[in-house]
Design a protein around this nucleic acid. Sequence first.
DNA 1: TTAGGTGCAAATTCTTTGCACCCTG
DNA 2: CAGGGTGCAAAGAATTTGCACCTAA
Lengths: 156, 156
Amino acid sequence: MGVDGKEVERRVERLQQAARKAGVKLTPQRIEIFRELAASIEHPSAEMVLKAVQPRMPTVSLDTVYRTLWLLADLGLVSTLGPKRASVRFDANLASHHHYTCVRCGLARDFESAELDALRIPKAVKELGSVASTHVEVRGVCGRCAKNQAKSSRNK
Amino acid sequence: MGVDGKEVERRVERLQQAARKAGVKLTPQRIEIFRELAASIEHPSAEMVLKAVQPRMPTVSLDTVYRTLWLLADLGLVSTLGPKRASVRFDANLASHHHYTCVRCGLARDFESAELDALRIPKAVKELGSVASTHVEVRGVCGRCAKNQAKSSRNK
DNA sequence: TTAGGTGCAAATTCTTTGCACCCTG
DNA sequence: CAGGGTGCAAAGAATTTGCACCTAA
């Protein structure tokens, strides 16, 4: 919880439009799963969403939650934190740096910028907790994937 | 590969100092695993590190790579991309926003900032690929964990 | 009606752990 | 020499998939 009720309903409406446009069915499960996520500010995991939805829909299963969340992500209604379906990646670069990540292949590269090292963090953040580090995440499609894009979209 | 040889050796020296200071043993496996990571710009996964090290040390096992990488992370010589040892987290907030993450408990919260929405991205990044989105990741220790900190450090 | 969606259980993938032997400090 | 470290294999956790039944459009 934490999101204004009006805003939640607005998000659910957007879901309905998007579902119709994409030609996917809107089942009660999908609506409840989405509503739960839309109302939360906690960035829940699939498991957390399941737990939140179960009281209202005791039969939903974890796999449906996963399938629904990834479907919503494909529809662009939901985003994910951290690397999608991938493993932890390590980094021995101790200098302050920022990340570029390819959303298609997972390529990850560092880049440096004195300007970005010196960001001003809003005071609202400091109410959440201490600030140990700050960095910028840039997402996009890397050069190599952009080249292969024509091929893969043809397969669609 | 990709990191200057001098810099790699500097990093390995730092490892030796840190290991001595922390009282952990420096085995050939640990040195090779670290050297591999220190020389890479690819943010490799544990599996990728294993593959890179195996030619030189055919007997190393994947579990040693994991144990070593997390040890190095504890020593502060290595960092990780994405959420540590955790699952994917989802987000239905479509507005441009930034993230605060507690490194201790994984708490994740959004925050907004018009200033941070308008960052200038260095042109070096555009050579890597297209830029679809940009956001700021802030890490720290949240208020609740800071309160519990005294307790947990006592258990040490 | 019917293609797409769901639930269940089994399969995968990534990561961690128990244990006996080994080697650094 | 002692205690931490390693390798192996087995255990765990998170996520995906195959299949038969069900339901939204």
